[in-house]
């Protein structure tokens, strides 16, 4: 690991100070849980000269918002959010996505803001050597002709096919969460759809944040249909593994018809993938396996696969249908 210097920030004044320190220096990074930062620093993928420790800033906790939503402080750990009663009751797909991510140790360490900022697990990005447009714009993409079994099939470009790795971001996208940030001179709020950028021609640009802009909180609406929601994760082993395909779904059925639905997919997109086509296909129609299947096919119609990940659209279709069948069977009449 390269040498680094270290500054700790604390207290309410520390937020502006941390933002100021990192904003003023392109070689400074924030340090929260460290599960990505320290790992990639050690592997020479990230190269800050200075870490600004934000762990003691007052940005933790799950609060009620006046509109009934929940505000999750950016430094709240994954395990704390998963255990919060309000999250378990009102947003079961969020709690479930959290406990199915990483390991117990990592969930105690990793912050929610850091989860939003985590780097991709593409082996060519993380080896620090292979051509990678994310790490070195213009260098090319080794994954396109390489080992790509876990790579994305939706939202890809000719410059990058890395899968977005977060589990919890998937239900957050389904719920239209808002990412709140602080810059040196303003507070900002991003609809989560605008927060995760498609790779396009600039895969190095993963978020709209400026250098030194700090996530302070994630606001999550809690619509009634989310009380009966699920997160279904399919992976190569039962635990402690990234998703090949995952589905966050909430479904409301009245008189046999879909009256409300939220769906997002993980493991298949270059960003946490809101399945709007599937949602549009479902609303107002019958809550039957046949219509679930049609909706899944509509969403996956534009999947672009490599020879190694060609199984993903079919796996995603099956997983989505199973998720919706499960929600229907368990009774989502409200």
């Amino acid at each position: 690991m390269r040498p680094i210097s270290y500054v700790r920030t604390e207290g309410a004044d520390g937020i502006d100070r941390a933002v100021g320190l990192v904003t003023a220096d392109p070689d400074s990074h924030f340090l929260a849980g460290g599960t990505t930062e320290v790992d990639l620093l050690r592997q020479h993928v990230l190269a800050p000269n200075r870490l600004v420790d934000i762990n003691r800033l007052p940005l933790s906790g799950v609060e009620e918002l006046p509109d009934g939503g929940l505000r999750i402080g950016a430094l709240t750990r994954m395990s704390e959010v998963a255990a919060a009663p309000a999250v378990q009751e009102r947003l079961p797909m969020v709690a479930r996505a959290l406990v199915l991510g990483a390991s117990a140790q990592l969930r105690h360490m990793a912050s929610m803001g850091g989860n939003m900022m985590q780097k991709v697990r593409c082996g060519y990005y993380r080896d620090g050597e292979s051509p990678c447009n994310k790490r070195e714009p213009g260098a090319g993409c080794a994954a396109l002709g390489g080992v790509s079994r876990t790579h994305a099939v939706l939202g890809t470009s000719e410059h990058c096919i890395a899968t977005h790795p977060s589990d919890v971001a998937v239900p957050l996208v389904a719920l239209d969460a808002v990412i709140r940030t602080r810059t040196a001179d303003s507070e900002r709020a991003y609809a989560i759809d605008e927060f995760f950028l498609p790779p396009g021609d600039t895969p190095d640009r993963e978020h709209p944040l400026t250098h030194g802009e700090l996530i302070t909180a994630i606001d999550v609406p809690t619509p009634p249909l989310a009380r009966r929601s699920l997160y279904l994760k399919v992976r190569d082993r039962e635990s402690y593994e990234f998703a090949l395909v995952s589905v966050a779904a909430a479904l409301e059925v009245r008189d046999g018809k879909v009256s409300g639905v939220r769906i997002a997919l993980g493991g298949v997109g270059t960003r946490p993938w809101r399945a709007r086509r599937a949602e549009d296909a479902l609303v107002g129609g019958p809550a039957t396996t046949a219509s679930f299947d049609l909706a899944a096919r509509a969403e996956l119609a534009e999947a672009r696969t490599t020879p190694m990940n060609a199984f993903k659209p079919e796996l995603a279709r099956r997983t989505l249908v199973r998720a919706l069948e499960t929600l229907t069977r368990d009774g989502s009449q409200s």
């Binding site: 040498p3 680094i4 210097s5 270290y6 500054v7 700790r8 320190l21 003023a24 220096d25 392109p26 070689d27 000269n49 200075r50």
Partner: peptide
């Protein structure tokens, strides 16, 4: 000497 012209903070520690 920091690239941006920002000097070390009073409470900055390391890299030594």
């Amino acid at each position: 000497g920091r690239a941006t012209g920002t000097g070390p903070e009073a409470d900055e520690r390391g890299p030594e």
